[in-house]
Nucleic acid binder design. Structure first.
Lengths: 190, 190, 190, 190
DNA sequence: CATGAATGAGAATTCATTCAT
DNA sequence: GATGAATGAATTCTCATTCAT
């Protein structure tokens, strides 16, 4: 019985999270009101307060959960046995694929990152640390040039996100993507 | 006498724009309600509707106006006689200085860019075109490598913006900035 | 316990309806704003939107409910055993009494009937059909002359409403009313 | 020059009146705001206050002017030499034609008549007095039965207005109209 | 746990009106 | 006479949140 209840809970909570993400994609942070989220999740607005103390809480928590998603996604496509070129290729293409396959989450995270209140409580560095740790290992082995973490993050993630954001205007994008991979290989590897 | 009225008008509209920008910086797009903006601008909320048809209109127009500001700022620090290294230095440092000196506008534009509704009507490409045109000239002279515009934009603007956004966490930043300049010089020049 | 809640609800909704009717009587359709209605009903303006989707919805629903009231009132004073003279007397005096006893509802319905948006969704014919059905029976028995429904409605209801509307200017009105009854008896019966 | 101004005035004032009438027809009394009226009339909202002291004033004045229009229209189709049957025919058909030919004014007057504030300052009796005076003459000559003015008004004007209001639902209406004429001839004449 | 009902606060927008020009 | 600009007050409606059940 208890487990049944638990399962019900998780269903509801997951439906709420999904609703948050998809609503924010469609209507922006402004349009994502508690009642719309509730309607989309198929629960009562009051139910949301069973799981979260406030709307802010909810957004923060969902943001925290999804902010790390692209990095996890990238980590899964990486094999520590890869050489430097393959690693950069995997990271850049991983970031890009994620934004295509999970457009909702990508857009949701992008929007939340710029929202002063939300971004305070979720630091990007913390999210990307696994990837950076891996690169540190490559740097130690003399494969990657010893750029600082800030600049590694800046050139590895920001440009590909820029391409992803302009995907619709850019057409297919495969060419640009391949070019970016080549640029970063030149730039970052010995 | 007529000029008095004109001045009064322009004052009001400018005060409204300023209020929009500074409120969005402080409270995010969510927090920038028409009445708060009006209060901050020292006008009646109804007055805003003398100048704009709707809140959306207002944000779009202000966004459109400021989206181009950082590029104009950069253009002013550029001299066509510069060599490639100096050009990249000027662009990157220009972007960074702008975000420091005009934190409000920088943050305002960043936020608006992620807002689906707003970004639709203001394309980044259009804003950056002057800078890109200049680089085309350098490419034609064999100074810059012939990367595509998308990737030029991606590596010239996105990473430095990334640094700017993390300025507070990054400390001084001068070192990172210098490093980024060097990286891009290596990457983009022959 | 459950009944308590129900009662509370119905009380609120009824108080809202009453407020709509009495406000429109006093201040016209223009003057009946949602917040005035809420104040008069002793609820929060937001509560009204728990019961109705919009102001328009609310007016339509209340109108629909009350538009039929005068006809129901008349039907209750009618006995199918009456002869033709008594029937006309009952109908005309019933209409008139209703407008005296329920001035608020009478005036409310009159006003809504002239409001293009509202009258579209509530047809008078549907409301008066019970009375007309009864007259059809009298017509079949050769008591009433076989005038069309449109003209039956036109002469049976419109003139007495006209008198009711001018009640205040008309003084007592009993004489006029008696005269109208006689006129219609002559006109409609064999 | 002065005459020029006068002409300009009258043009503007007439355009305002027209706008009032046609807006109220289309959007009801609620929808007829001063600015909409101004826009429709092609003048500035402030200009309306050159001609009228307030919106209420304006409505009252326009209402006063048009309330009498249907009666004037009827009077023009009447010839004192007509016999009783022809007179009733002319009155009823006149009322009906007016409502067809001047749907805007008809609907405007109907709506204003039910609006408590407006109807107070424009009495129907005053408007219909010319027609009634004429009938008095016929009554004196023993052509019309000596019903009271209230009931004359009630049966001569209210039913035909009822038909006019239901014109769209009623189809052509010629038959109903002819029937109503016959009914009233029987009822009112010796 | 889940929710329907309720609400004060505030949202965007429009209102009728004024006034300097 | 005519108007653009300005506004306080009011409009409809939605918000995030609470609470009794």
């Amino acid at each position: 019985m208890e487990s049944l209840v638990r399962i019900k809970d998780e269903n509801k909570q997951q439906r709420i999270k999904d609703a948050v993400v998809s609503l924010i994609l469609r209507e922006g942070i402004n349009g994502a009101s508690v009642s719309k989220i509730a309607r989309e999740a198929g629960v009562s607005a009051a139910t949301i307060y069973v799981y979260y103390n406030s709307k802010e809480d909810m957004l923060t928590e969902v943001f925290r959960e999804y902010a790390i998603a692209p990095y996890r996604y990238v980590m899964q496509r990486i094999d520590p046995a890869m050489d430097g070129r393959a690693l950069i290729d995997a990271i850049v293409r991983g970031c890009y694929s994620f934004s295509c396959e999970h457009e909702e989450i990508f857009s949701f995270v992008e929007q939340c990152s710029r929202c002063p209140t939300l971004s305070e409580s979720v630091s990007e560095e913390a999210c990307s640390c696994d990837v950076l740790d891996l690169i540190h290992a490559y740097q130690a082995r003399g494969v990657f040039r010893p750029y600082s973490d800030w600049n590694l993050g800046a050139v590895l993630f920001a440009p590909v996100r820029f391409l992803a954001m302009n995907r619709s205007a850019m057409g297919e994008g495969e060419e640009s993507l391949a070019e970016l991979v080549r640029m970063l290989q030149t730039l970052l590897l010995y």
